[in-house]
Amino acid sequence: MSDVELSQADANELIAMPKIRITDEIRYFPGSGGALNVPLVSEDWREDFVLTIRRGRIDLNRGSYQNIGRNTVILLRAELNGPPHRNPDDAEIPCPHIHIYKEGFGTKWAYPFPTDFANPADYWTTLQDFIKYCNIILPPKILRGLE
C-alpha cells in the first residue's frame, strides 16, 4: 500500500500507541463485499490512523481488518477465512493469520493468530479483539447491522 519505510522502532511505537475515535458517529459493519474506513487519532492528536474493515462478497466470514498509520503504512492486518499466506522464507501460514509491520518487508510476513483472539471464526468477536490488539482505547461506534 505504501512506499513509506518506517524503522521497526517507529512502527512498534505506532502499533503500541493508544488510539481514539475522532467522532461519536455511529457506523455500520459492512455487508457482503463492503468496506468501512474509520479515522482514528493518537490521544495527543499528533498521529492519524485508520481502521479498515473489508468483507468478502460471497463468504461473509472472509475479510480483513487493518490498522493504518502515517496515512499509508499498514501496521497490522488480520485476514479471516482466506487462503494461506506464503512468507518470504517460503513458510506457509494458514488463515486466519495476522500481518505485523516488519522493517524492510512491510506486511509481507504473516504470523499465526495471537492466542488472545477469543474466536477467530467469529468475525464480530475478532473485530473486537483486533480493536484491543491495535490499542484502540476509545473505539469507534460500530453496529452489526443486518446481514
Rank of each mutant, 00 (worst) to 15 (best):
P84W: 01
N12T: 08
N81L: 09
P83I: 03
A16M: 01
F113E: 05
M1C: 02
S32P: 09
G31M: 04
A121L: 07
W109I: 12
A9G: 00
A11G: 05
G63M: 10
Q66C: 13
I98H: 04
D10N: 11
R21D: 02
A91S: 15
L75Q: 07
D89G: 07
Q8T: 11
I142W: 00
P139E: 08
G63H: 08
I53C: 08
N87G: 08
D129C: 04
G31R: 06
L138P: 00
V73S: 04
R86K: 12
P140F: 03
R46V: 14
N135P: 01
E103W: 07
E5P: 01
E92M: 04
P83F: 04
S2K: 01
P83V: 01
T125S: 10
I137Y: 00
R77I: 12
R77F: 07
D24R: 08
R21P: 00
N37D: 12
D129F: 02
L14A: 12
P120L: 02
V38M: 12
H97T: 05
L51Y: 07
H99D: 06
K132T: 12
V73G: 05
Y111M: 10
R55D: 05
I22T: 14
D116T: 10
F130Y: 07
E47T: 13
D116N: 14
R86V: 15
E43G: 06
F105S: 13
I131Q: 01
S7V: 05
P96F: 08
D90H: 09
L36G: 03
P96A: 11
I137T: 15
R77C: 07
V38E: 11
L76Q: 09
W109H: 06
G145F: 03
R86I: 12
F113N: 00
D129H: 04
P120C: 01
A91W: 00
Y111I: 00
P112E: 12
N71H: 15
S64M: 13
A110E: 04
F49N: 09
R62T: 11
S64Q: 13
R55V: 15
E103A: 13
Q8C: 04
N81A: 15
D90G: 03
A9M: 04
A121K: 04
I100K: 14
D129E: 05
D89K: 10
I26Q: 08
K102R: 15
R77D: 03
H85A: 14
N37S: 12
C95A: 15
N119S: 11
N61P: 02
I15G: 03
Y28I: 15
V4W: 00
T125E: 09
A121V: 01
G104D: 08
V41H: 07
I137S: 08
R62N: 10
K141A: 10
R55Q: 14
K19N: 06
D24Y: 04
Y101H: 11
R144E: 11
F117V: 12
L76H: 06
I26Y: 02
V4M: 09
D48S: 14
K132H: 05
